[in-house]
Every structure is written in structure tokens, then in C-alpha cells.
Design a protein around this nucleic acid. Structure first.
Length: 528
RNA sequence: GCACCCGUAGCUCAGCUGGAUAGAGCGUUGGCCUCCGGAGCCAAAGGUCAGAGGUUCGAAUCCUCUCGGGUGCGCCA
């Protein structure tokens, strides 16, 4: 809809146009301060320019009214235009809001180490990535979801060691000496019990079996992580194993050397990441010849770019922000455009419980599990908490509040509006198809406000996706639901001369709420 | 010390590609059910947009500095 307006304006203006929604709805549906920027170029009075422009735009059929006010050009869409659009939307439910962006995007998210269950911080990135993918797909991108599995290195050995020791101590009752660093937490005990059962006691008699135990435990953890994700409706198209990448390392190192990207010093190989804006060069091969973690990431991103997507998005925890420069540097050395890699940082989540800060630490084992929160407040509420906040800001919430908040949760507010519409149709003994072609002519201003708000869903989705600000969708849904609740309160529907018109309007609102909720991974309720 | 994120109502947060009178939810106070779902609606109180400069027709929004909070600065992953 916005695009149609934009195109209409373009016919008359040869200048970048900013189109916005006026704060005061009396000003119309759209407004542009274009006259101010044109005034600078043309060196003329903005009021005058606005007036001339308004004059030209009045010829467009889709506009009912075009005003010039204090330099702004305010535009009001015609009722016929809005009505026809609503009819189209209701007849093409699946297509409403669908775009044709066409970009192919590889979205990497979660990528939590397979050494434990997902905690609440992971959940934020997981939900964000999932919804970004849902909306992106709806607006027409071809988005593939990928999980990078860090299944190599010391941490996996540590996992094995932890299970091995827990098995000896808690299951077999042997004396053990705990090292300084190991994984704690109940899940390690569970794993140990299972492992003794599945692998046999003899595996716990000799440290030499630790790598085998580690491998087994890692697989179990991946299964667990996937179950955690599935419980909130999150899935992946690809899993890439870090371990499997290293066989390509020699080849990649050669490529880097040919590009002049690496050098040898102190018996180690360094990436010249400072050449591309990093603060220092980074070791990629240790003295003993083993590649570092960065090497794995270099291979991974090289292969990503080889796969030829238009754009790449990684959602990382904010604690990895220092890592961006070196990965981008490597990409640049391969001759690819590092701009195509976009890193979205998901900031910390702090939890309170009854006002007390909850320290989250994987090693300490007292972190809050995503599955526990899901069990307490439900997947939908968990999704909503994260989606009402932008990703790059710290988020703090109290578990106790969330528990008691299930009644005042905005999801209920939105769903209630949706359910009310279905209740109306039921009471009226009608179905949507009975009213889609009804003309809305004759309805009042508030009805058209509501209709217009329902119809802007596509541009809200597009804007939210393009700006990576998913909270715009939740804001919109709350606003639309609020408008409908008020409208419902002010207007009687059934038994009035406007019954069919108002049912159509209600159906349109419900459609936008439903599609919007679907984008958030939440199913709209017809009854509550 | 350097880098990144943040500082907006009592609390949790929107608004930030500069635009018209700074918003929501919760909390507080007071109204609205003989009537389609009161899980709703209406109203009130509550703000030096951390502070100071700058840029310009115009700044919560952009720039600089200061103060305050968080995170990162491994050849761990």
C-alpha cells in the first residue's frame, strides 16, 4: 500500500521521498516532509512547493484528499481504494503481506556449544533468528537457517571428563579428584547415569575412554538442544560441524598465504587482520601446529561465501562482539565483500528471581534453562518477551513477574481481539466468505482508521525485517488489537444495519492479527 | 587503558535513516457490565529524554566531551 503511494508520488517528484505516518491521524494516512528538502535544492519557500505538489497529487484516484500544511504534504487514501484492498486481502489470506524481495540469505543463529542445554540467553537469539527468518521469508527472501556446531576442541573433552568423573563418583561411588575446570549441573549427572547404562561401567575405569564418552555425550547434548528448540517451534535447515571443517584447513591456509593474509612469527601463523581494521593480528595456527578456533571460523565463513548467497546474517551473543573484525578481515582476504556479512548481536539477558539477581554461568551450573522457563510461562510468552525488545539492548526481567503475569500478558490482549471477531461471526451465524465482497461505504471515520491500520501489516513486516527491529511487529499488533477493542466497545455490530460491513472490517482486523502472530511463531486463538 | 552496547515516567521498555503536542505495559488513583466475551473500555497523576557543548529552519534522534551501568579485550570455544 505504501509502495503504491510512493509510486504515485514518484510520478511527480524527482527526488528521494520520505514517506511517514503522521502522528495525528487527522492529518491523513501518509505525509511527507519532502518540500523541506526540495526547498534547499530549489531555493524556494517550502510552503509553496508543498502547495503545488498537493495540487498535482489531487489528480490521483487513490487519494481522497491531499493537503499542504506548514510545508508537509498530507495524503488521505480514498475509501474505494481501502475497501478494494481489504477485499483482495481477505480473498488471498495466504498472500496478504507477501513480498517479492528475492534475496537469498543464509541465517546462522543459536550455534550454542553442544556441552549443555540451552539457557535463557540462547533463547533470545533463537527466538530472534526464528522470527527474523519467518518474516524475511514472508516478505519474499529465500532464507536458510543454519546451526554451526562447535563440536571440536577442548570443551568437548571437558564435557567427556565431566561425565566421566560424575559417573565414577555419583554412579559408581568411586573417589575422584575434580579438576579446576569442568561442567557442573544436574544434566551432567543425568548424562553420567545414562552413560554408565549405555556405554558400560568399564568405560569409567580408564581415562583413555574419555574421548569416546565425550563423543557420546556431545551427541546426546545436540539431541537435547534440538528438543529444547523444537519445544518452542524452532528448526534448522542445515547443521555444520566445526570438526568436519578442519580437513580443508591446509587448502585454506595455502589460499590465505597466496593472498598475503598470513605470516609466520614465533613459530605460529598469524592472520594480518589489522590490515582490515582489527586491533591486532590473530593467531590461526599454534606453535604445535594445531589450528585455533578462529581457523575453524575462517574455513566456515569461506565455505559460506563459496555457497553463493546474496547476504549472510549471523546472530551472535554480544560477548562475541570483539570477534566481528577478525572474521570480516578473513572474508576480505578471500576477495569477498565483508559487507555481505551482517552480525546481529543479541545482548545479555539478566534474570531476577524475587528481586535477587540470577547469575548465569554455564560452568557453574546454576544457569537458567530455557526449558524451565518454557515450562513455567509457555513458549508463546517466552517468544513475546524477547520480541518486544530490540536485540541489542540489555534485557532484565523477573521470573516471578512472568509467572504471575500470564493474565496481563499482551499475547492475551491480542488473542482476545482475534477471538472476539470469531465470536461475532458465530453469533451472527455468518462466515467470512459471506461478507468479503460487501462494500464498506458509509462507515465512519473510526472504522476507516481501524481498516487502514489493519491494512498496513505488509509494510510493518517489511519495515521490521529491513530494519531488523522485530519489536515493531509486536508493537503494531498491540496497537491494532487496542484499536479493535475500543471499536468493539463503542460500536454494536450484530443486528445493526451495518452488520455485514462491520463483520468484514472485523475479519480484516483478524486477518492482520493472525498473519502477524504467525510471523512471531504464535498461533492465533479463535476461542479462549 | 582500548573496543562495543546501554542511560527516556515509580518499574520494564518503545520511539533514534533529524520533523508536527515524547509513548506503551505494569504499578497508583477514580469511573464503566439489564446490552455482541469486563482476559475489555474510559479518565487522572507521573518526564530538566543522564549532563554539557556543537551541527540547522528543527535534535530524545546526528557529532564531540563528561558522568553512570554492562560486556569484551586467550594461542578457550
Amino acid at each position: 500500500m505504501k509502495r503504491r503511494v510512493y509510486e504515485a508520488l514518484q510520478k511527480h517528484i524527482d527526488h528521494p521521498i520520505v514517506l511517514e505516518k503522521p502522528k495525528d491521524k487527522n492529518f491523513g494516512h501518509y505525509a511527507t516532509p519532502i518540500a523541506f528538502s526540495l526547498a534547499k535544492v530549489l531555493r524556494r519557500n517550502p510552503m509553496q512547493i508543498a502547495e503545488e505538489l498537493a495540487e498535482k497529487l489531487r489528480e490521483e484516484e487513490m487519494f481522497e484528499k491531499v493537503d499542504a500544511l506548514k510545508g508537509y504534504v498530507n495524503i488521505k487514501l480514498s475509501q474505494n481504494f481501502l475497501n478494494d484492498y481489504a477485499t483482495w486481502a481477505l480473498e488471498h489470506e495466504e498472500a496478504f503481506g507477501k513480498g517479492d524481495n528475492g534475496q537469498s540469505v543464509l541465517l546462522e543463529f543459536v550455534s550454542a556449544n553442544p556441552t549443555g542445554p540451552l539457557h535463557i540467553g540462547h533463547a533470545r537469539g533463537a527466538v530472534w533468528g526464528d522470527v527474523l527468518a519467518r518474516i524475511g521469508t514472508h516478505v519474499g527472501c529465500r532464507i536458510e537457517r543454519e546451526y554451526y556446531v562447535n563440536d571440536a576442541g577442548n570443551q568437548i573433552y571437558l564435557l567427556g571428563l565431566s561425565v566421566y568423573l560424575a559417573g565414577r563418583e555419583a554412579v559408581l561411588g568411586l573417589d575422584v579428584e575434580w579438576p579446576e575446570e569442568y561442567y557442573r549441573g544436574e544434566y551432567i549427572l543425568d548424562l553420567a547415569r545414562e552413560a554408565v547404562e549405555a556405554l558400560g561401567q568399564e568405560m569409567f575405569m580408564d581415562e583413555g575412554f574419555i574421548p569416546e564418552i565425550a563423543e557420546w555425550a556431545k551427541e546426546r547434548m545436540l539431541e537435547l538442544i534440538n528438543r529444547n528448540l523444537a519445544d518452542v517451534g524452532i528448526f534448522f535447515d542445515h547443521y555444520v560441524s566445526e570438526k568436519s571443517l578442519y580437513e580443508k584447513w591446509d587448502e585454506i591456509l595455502t589460499k590465505l598465504a597466496e593472498a598475503g593474509a598470513v605470516y609466520e612469527k614465533d613459530g605460529k601463523w598469524w592472520l594480518k587482520s589489522t590490515e582490515h581494521g582489527d586491533e591486532k593480528d590473530r593467531v590461526v595456527v599454534r606453535e604445535d601446529g594445531r589450528p585455533t578456533y578462529l581457523a575453524g571460523d575462517i574455513i566456515y565463513h569461506y565455505l559460506k561465501f563459496e555457497r553463493g548467497y546474496d547476504h549472510y546474517i549471523n546472530i551472535w551473543g554480544a560477548d562475541h562482539h570483539g570477534y566481528i573484525a577478525r572474521v570480516k578481515a578473513a572474508i576480505a582476504f578471500f576477495g569477498y565483500d565483508p559487507q555481505k556479512l551482517e552480525i546481529i548481536l543479541s545482548q545479555m539477558v539478566s534474570l531476577l528471581k524475587g528481586g535477587e539477581p540470577y547469575k548465569m554461568s554455564k560452568r557453574a551450573g546454576n544457569f537458567i534453562l530455557m526449558q524451565d522457563i518454557v515450562q513455567e510461562i509457555g513458549a508463546d510468552a517466552l517468544r513475546f518477551i524477547f520480541l518486544t525488545k530490540k536485540s541489542d539492548t540489555h534485557l532484565e526481567f523477573d521470573i516471578e513477574d512472568l509467572k504471575k503475569e500470564d493474565n496481563s500478558n499482551p499475547i492475551y490482549y491480542i488473542n482476545y481481539a482475534h477471538a472476539r471477531v470469531f465470536s461475532l461471526f458465530e453469533k451472527a451465524g455468518k462466515e467470512q466468505k459471506d461478507v468479503v465482497r460487501v462494500s464498506l461505504n458509509g462507515l465512519g471515520e473510526d472504522a476507516y482508521d481501524l481498516l487502514f491500520t489493519a491494512l498496513i501489516l505488509p509494510e510493518v513486516l517489511e519495515d521490521a525485517f529491513e530494519s531488523r527491529q522485530l519489536q515493531k511487529v509486536t508493537d503494531y499488533l498491540k496497537y491494532l488489537a487496542g484499536l479493535y477493542h475500543k471499536f468493539y466497545y463503542d460500536n454494536r455490530v450484530i443486528g445493526t444495519p451495518y452488520e455485514e460491513k462491520l463483520l468484514k472490517l472485523s475479519a480484516m482486523v483478524a486477518l492482520s492479527l493472525r498473519v502477524g502472530l504467525k510471523m512471531l511463531g504464535i498461533t492465533a486463538m479463535k476461542k479462549m
